[in-house]
């Protein structure tokens, strides 16, 4: 139904707030972005930056106390305007999600196979037997050895990496058009992380799904994403093609994040460039730039005026910084 070249997902002016006893906490503020069919968009930021809340809001899996505005056109319909029943038909079907912690994301009292076949049965009019066969096929696809036997085991009999594979199998069970992976490797060992990323790449190749990869780890993004957007204190801070972000970032916050990636060739003793300070409170945002107190480039203007998300030199590269155009080339600031 969408015209060639049209976006798969187009989010416009998304706001998510939470009512608390101390006032409204703005977890996502005026976020707009798009994902094209088949591409990988990485959403990067520290914890609390609003990246996970964005994803949960798209799936309408947010807590009940959330207040949401904006639109999210997916395949011609506004997800945020969908009723419960229509949203259920989307979840796990055309949009599927992989969560952070595979240790807690599977129900401990049901077998892994049961939980995957449930996803198949929820969206397809097939017999339980057929769903089970599909489950075994899916487990095989994500590289779970002896899928037939493993399907009837419980989650606690799976290792962390194997559970995440099972979660991925569950997510792709209905050939989704969009896969949302929320920190899919954060809870895993480093060696297992690479394997899981590889599985994600494989299944995307198989299904042609687009992916929204949420992570705090820019290192993970480098080999996996087509485009990157960086979030800070509930707002988009920079967005662009992967090369624009990595080699020509126009934002001090992104640069600080890039500086904190451990380099493979650097000496172990070399101190990581951690970003000093903490993210600001989301309760009563100050009028200026939220990154100002931690920013190495700050000028007077930053305390009074929130920078707008500016298009850089006509490309699809946007940055929220008063100095976006003036910053020195990235090669001069980072080793």
């Amino acid at each position: 139904m969408n015209a060639p070249g049209a976006a798969l997902l187009e989010v416009d002016g998304l706001n998510v707030g939470f009512k608390t006893s101390d006032g409204l906490v703005r977890a996502v503020t005026d976020v707009s972005f798009r994902i094209d069919p088949g591409e990988v968009l990485a959403v990067v930021g520290e914890s609390g930056s609003g990246k996970s809340v964005t994803a949960l809001a798209l799936m309408k899996l947010h807590p009940r106390s959330a207040v949401i505005s904006g639109t999210a056109m997916f395949d011609g319909v506004d997800l945020l305007a969908l009723g419960d029943a229509d949203m259920r038909a989307v979840r796990g079907n055309s949009i599927a999600m992989v969560f952070q912690d595979p240790m807690t994301a599977l129900n401990p009292v049901f077998t892994v196979g049961f939980q995957i076949s449930e996803a198949v049965l929820a969206h397809n009019d097939v017999t339980k037997k057929a769903a089970w066969a599909r489950t075994v096929e899916l487990l095989d696809l994500v590289g779970v050895p002896e899928p037939r036997q493993r399907a009837s085991q419980y989650p606690h009999e799976f290792s962390g990496g194997m559970r995440q594979r099972a979660m991925i199998a569950m997510a792709i069970s209905n050939d989704p058009k969009l896969l949302i992976a929320d920190e899919p490797t954060t809870a895993l060992d480093v060696t297992v992380q690479a394997q899981v990323m590889e599985v994600l790449r494989e299944v995307r190749k198989e299904t042609g799904a687009a992916m929204m990869l949420i992570t705090h780890d820019l290192g993970l993004v480098a080999g996996a994403a087509d485009r990157v957007q960086v979030m800070y204190a509930s707002r988009l801070f920079e967005a662009g093609a992967i090369d624009d972000i990595f080699y020509d970032s126009r934002n001090p916050y992104t640069r600080a994040l890039l500086g904190s990636i451990p380099q493979v060739d650097s000496e172990r003793t070399e101190r990581l460039l951690a970003i000093p300070g903490n993210p600001p409170s989301l309760l009563n945002p100050s009028p200026g730039c939220p990154f100002m107190p931690r920013c190495s480039e700050r000028v007077e203007r930053c305390t009074e005026e929130l920078p707008t998300l500016l298009e850089i030199r006509g490309r699809e590269h946007r940055s929220r910084c008063h100095l976006a155009q003036e910053l020195a080339p990235i090669s001069e600031v980072l080793p």
Partner: peptide, 15 residues
Amino acid sequence: NSDFIRTARAKGLSE
């Protein structure tokens, strides 16, 4: 409030 309930909802299961 546990993660696996969110997973179950994310699968599109009925409430």
